[in-house]
Design a protein around this nucleic acid. Structure first.
Length: 820
DNA sequence: GACTGAACTATACC
DNA sequence: ACGGGTATAGTTCAGTC
């Protein structure tokens, strides 16, 4: 039997003590296929230097005799090879020790306490990763496979017969194909339940959306009236059974939800248990499975479950403008569509005609989730192909884990043996380390500037790591001549000039990023965009990776040296810029802004070329833009120019605002909108005149209570469980009020409240004692909003023009508390 | 009870 | 526990006078 196939989901099982991989994939004819394969199982024993051949042979003989009987398995060392390998860039001799079962490698490694053995490595990758590396069967890439069909046979105790697939193949030969296109079958779903806590309320309805398929299943208010796309069942138990049936009927490659790892699937399972319903939706007939770490992960055998929220969190959130990652905001940003409006009520309080709206709301959530999946699919696909790990894992891993997967899957090009994961104690030690010196930030002189430009280092920290060869394996314990050297916390560190595998891999990542970015410019498509983006994210995360305590290739010295070399680079570039007749106004980490003075744009570009010709290695500066005007303000105390706070306007009139209250979600809408308008007026017009009139108008409206309470709402995130707060802040009070009223929230929720006028008898000076929830009756606190929201938002901006806003509004300087 | 600096907290920048 | 360090600023807490 021969067929083309694309691997989607990986699993493994043991048969007669050996490991077998089970890949669920699709054929070119869109048949679901199960591929069973195996690979060599081994790990490495790295030998100490200068061990003689005779001693090695003795050692091999000893190790060959190792037999284990653990957990009812009999494992033994089956074969040993002597290999010339590299570990941390150093040439070493290693024994490749083959054994029966991957899960026992750790136990065998524990038996290798012989003095000739320096280190044991390569037993902690997990069997699936080990298999992918060993056989090079990369997820979501096409292969041609040859092998016997084992359906209706007794192979592996007839395991194939229990899989709900079109056919099962025992692989004989697998070769890669050039083909790339793959459009999976996707099913999106969403549930509505009465209680927020998992399993505590009844599931009222479940919506399901796939290609040419949409449906709401419900057992509520179904009699009599007919609703489009709504299927009625008898009760919750039947609802759950119908859900399982439809999943099996549609038989998707992917099932997707939004926060479905932590909500929808756990809820469904919990209710199914209560109703005594078996949800045998896995291809092997198994139910939903959960693994609980810091976050719950929900797994269905053979159908890849993707929680879009998890992937968006790691891959996108950094670059998104949404203030929360709610489905509503994310769908709006990615698709330009919002959720339907529906006011939540307990089902017992929903009246007859409201149900139809509820059904529509529920269905639309699945529609949005389905569309989001389709939109994000190219990124999931490319992440999986580039990291070479199953899309299930890649969609949930953080960026440091993605960097690590990329490294582990590319080590063989360097003949490198993988480093082990740090132990619990090692992580503890690393975490105890204090901070090292990070980025350089130039404090600006507050003011309004005209005719500006900005330069940035492209993939700044990444190109520093490549240029100066900074990594664990190139770090030199002792000073060496002809090495890269810099000072970190009064200590000199040295890095070899002989290219290390980490910087080399990163160099390739940055090059690929450049190539795909160029290709994308020439002929845009979603896959190129995703590929370019994935390499960009990898490049940006690799600096953080080397400084991350959980990393296999952790190297504090490399991380600190990266920051150090980057500081040097930006300072040198700034100095040259000043010397060339420009004036640097501000700098942060890897970019700086300056006024052109008498230089033309062309001269600026020529100067950029000259700067670049003088930069070492792959370091490169690029033009960010030219700006008509820019404003920098002082800190609140008024002593210095504030860092990380400025606004620029491009020649096309586009604003670039950083750090101001406008971009902070924990300020009320009124203050943010007003500040944004003030900045726009000032930067457009070059003076404060109109802005001042505008501010006066707003203040008047506030005093006359003409402002909608909605614009006064303050949103603050709960960063931890309510009980863990030491300081009782306004948002803690708001959360306590929510708790009393049984409004659901948890760590991570945005808490909404406003500051109200004091009721009679409340003499407290604390702001928290004036906190009211949004739906609580009351009036906004005039004094608070003027003094704590409106004025602070514009005070420092006007100070640039030597205008004291207090004088303008009250005719006198700001009163001290004593004067009140 | 007024005042002040430290502690706690959230959020942004790159 | 699930990249890093740098920075601003608000509110409360705890101590002093």
């Amino acid at each position: 039997m021969k067929t083309e196939f694309i691997p989607i989901d990986y699993d493994y099982f043991d048969f007669e003590g050996r490991n077998y991989i089970k890949i669920i994939g699709k054929t070119e004819k869109d048949k679901r296929i199960c591929v069973i394969d195996s690979c060599d199982v081994y790990f490495w024993a790295i030998l100490k230097e200068k061990i003689r051949q005779k001693e090695i042979e003795k050692l091999i003989e000893k190790i060959s005799k190792i037999k284990l009987d653990v957990k009812g398995r009999q494992t033994k060392v089956e074969k040993i090879q002597i290999c010339s390998k590299k570990f941390m860039g150093k040439e070493i001799t290693a024994l490749k020790i083959f054994a029966t079962n991957y899960k026992d490698l750790h136990d065998i490694a524990d038996k290798l306490g012989m003095p000739e053995i320096e280190k044991r490595r390569g037993y902690d990758l997990g069997f699936i990763s080990h298999y992918i590396i060993e056989k090079n069967i990369v997820p979501l890439c096409w292969y041609k496979i040859e092998g016997d069909i084992i359906d209706n046979t007794t192979e592996f105790n007839g395991i194939a017969n229990s899989f709900d697939v079109d056919f099962c193949i025992k692989a004989e030969n697998i070769v890669p194909l050039k083909k790339e296109e793959f459009s999976p079958k996707v099913l999106a779903f969403d549930i509505e339940a009465d209680e927020f806590k998992i399993g505590e309320g009844e599931i009222l309805m479940i919506s399901l959306v796939s290609e040419n398929f949409k449906k709401v299943i419900t057992w509520k208010k179904c009699k009599g009236k007919e609703f489009p796309d709504v299927e009625c069942v008898k009760d919750e138990a039947e609802l759950l059974e119908r859900f399982a049936e439809i999943v099996k009927e549609i038989s998707p490659d992917f099932i997707t939800g939004y926060f479905s790892d932590g909500f929808d699937l756990p809820y469904i399972k919990s209710r199914a248990d209560k109703c005594k319903i078996k949800l045998n939706i896995g291809v092997d007939g198994s139910s939903i499975k959960f693994s609980k770490g810091i976050m719950t992960t929900s797994h269905i055998n053979g159908i890849v479950h993707i929680d879009l929220l998890r992937f968006i969190q790691t891959a996108y959130s950094q670059y998104m403008s949404s203030e929360t990652l709610s489905l509503n905001e994310v769908a709006n940003e990615f698709l330009g569509e919002r959720k339907k409006e529906f006011e939540f009520k307990h089902s017992s309080k929903i009246s007859g005609d409201e149900w139809e709206k509820y059904f529509e709301y529920n269905l639309h959530d699945s529609v949005l989730t389905y569309k989001l999946f389709k939109k994000i699919w190219p990124d999931l696909l490319e992440f999986s192909r580039i990291m070479q790990e199953p899309v299930f894992d890649v969609s949930r891993n953080g960026m440091s884990r993605n960097v690590e997967d990329y490294i582990l899957h590319n080590l063989s090009k360097f003949n490198e043996i993988p480093e082990k994961r740090p132990t619990y104690d090692e992580i503890g030690e690393r975490r105890k380390r204090g901070k090292y010196e990070g980025a350089f930030v130039l404090g600006p002189k507050a003011g309004l500037y005209e005719n500006l430009s900005a330069f940035d280092f492209t993939s700044s920290y990444g190109s520093v790591i490549v240029t100066y060869n900074l990594s664990r394996s190139t770090f030199l314990e002792k000073p060496e001549e002809n090495s890269y050297s810099t000072e970190i916390s009064n200590k000199k560190v040295y890095f070899s000039k002989s290219p290390g595998f980490f910087p080399q891999m990163l160099k390739e990542i940055i090059e690929k990023r450049r190539i795909y970015k160029d290709e994308l410019k020439k002929k845009p498509d979603a896959i190129k965009r995703a590929r370019s983006n994935a390499f960009k994210l990898l490049a940006n995360a690799s600096y953080g990776y080397q400084g991350f305590f959980g990393a296999r290739y952790y190297c504090e010295e490399a991380a600190a040296a990266t920051a150090s070399f980057a500081r040097r680079a930006i300072k040198e570039a700034m100095e040259k810029t000043n010397n060339a007749g420009f004036s640097v106004i501000y700098a942060d980490t890897d970019g700086f802004a300056f006024t052109l003075n008498k230089n033309s744009k062309q001269k600026t570009l020529d100067f950029l070329k000259k700067l670049n010709s003088e930069l070492p290695g792959i370091m490169e500066l690029e033009l960010e833009d030219f700006y008509k005007r820019g404003i920098w303000v002082t800190t609140r105390t008024g002593e210095f120019g504030a860092k990380k706070k400025y606004a620029l306007i491009s020649e096309e009139g586009k604003l670039k605002i950083r750090g101001f209250e406008t971009v902070r979600r924990d300020w009320c809408t009124l203050a943010r909108e007003m500040q944004n308008n003030v900045l726009l007026m000032i930067l457009k017009e070059g003076n404060e005149k109109n802005a001042l009139e505008y501010i006066k108008k707003i203040v008047k409206e506030v005093k006359e209570r003409k402002i909608d309470l909605k614009k006064m709402v303050i949103r603050t995130q709960m960063k931890k469980p309510l009980s863990e707060y030491k300081a009782i802040t306004p948002h803690v009070i708001a959360a306590r009020k929510m708790q009393e009223r049984e409004i659901p929230f948890s760590a991570g929720s945005l808490i909404e409240y406003y500051i109200s006028e004091t009721t009679t008898g409340n003499k407290s000076k604390l702001i928290r004692d004036k906190v009211k929830l949004v739906d609580e009756n009351g009036e906004y606190n005039l004094e608070y909003y003027l003094k704590h929201q409106i004025l602070p938002a514009v005070e420092n901006i006007l100070q640039v023009f030597n205008v004291d806003i207090h004088v303008i509004l009250d005719g006198k300087k700001q009163m001290t508390l004593g004067e009140f």
